[in-house]
Amino acid sequence: MLATVLPIAFALVSLAFVLSLVRFIKGPDLPDRILALDTLYINAIALLILLGLYLGSALYFEAALLIAVMGFVGTVALSKYLLRGDIME
């Protein structure tokens, strides 16, 4: 059952990835692009966990955790840049 469902899930999440990418390229403003990046990293986490389920390996979890941490720091740094006009003080 899981084997039939996983490819569908891959397709859905990949479509989500593409839609976020379109928004990232289209903009139109900087906050839109930051939000698109934020969504992209969450989609990447979903894809990685699905890959881990597909291959039956728990190894991908560490990568997902790292992406979650780094993605959050990246979003905060970019928003702070817009707020202060300076990356980190």
Binding site: L2, I8, L12, T39, A46
Partner: peptide, 27 residues
């Protein structure tokens, strides 16, 4: 069955989030 349902729900909502990002009119 539970696993398949959870995976499908998860993938569906991830897609809905991105659809919202794509099609809603303002930031």
């Amino acid at each position: 069955w539970i696993l398949a349902l959870l995976v499908l729900i998860g993938a569906f909502f991830t897609l809905v989030g991105s659809i919202g990002l794509y099609k809603l009119p303002d930031f």
